[in-house]
Design a protein around this nucleic acid. Structure first.
Length: 116
DNA sequence: CAAGTGACTCCTA
DNA sequence: TTAGGAGCCACTT
């Protein structure tokens, strides 16, 4: 990996947040980006998740887009592995979209409280 | 070195 | 209301 130290740090921050997502809850790329102070760099959060596959402790399946759609499910090994993982946590997924996403949404800014 | 791509989001018509 | 375009940062080619 040729990731610059700063980028790697950004990745770690993303992982730290994703790792703290409670079981059965989900969040969005934008929420994480906002918590990290990079609300306009939500794409980078997704890119960070791309490298999260190397970390077994990173529940990337709990990270969805702002609409609660499983946009990144194609990046998982299995075709519907992401949906299965969410369902195993009690989350209902319909048509690649999380049901009652608004209620299951976990905002790191509120949960962790902008400590940075 | 320059252009293209993407696990996104927001603004405007 | 839905649909479309621009902005964003880092990586790849």
């Amino acid at each position: 990996m040729n990731y610059a130290p700063e980028t790697e740090s950004f990745f770690k921050r993303v992982y730290a947040v994703v790792r703290q997502i409670p079981n059965g809850r989900v969040t969005s790329y934008g929420a994480i980006a906002k918590y990290l102070g990079a609300a306009r760099s939500s794409r980078m959060v997704g890119w960070a998740m791309n490298g999260a596959g190397k970390y077994p402790d990173i529940p990337a399946h709990r990270v969805l887009n702002r609409a609660g759609v499983l946009t990144g499910k194609h990046h998982f090994p299995g075709t519907h592995l992401m949906q299965q993982l969410l369902e195993s946590e009690g989350i209902v997924v319909i048509n690649d979209q999380v049901a009652d996403f608004k209620n299951l949404f976990w905002d790191p800014v509120l949960a962790l409280g902008m400590e940075e």
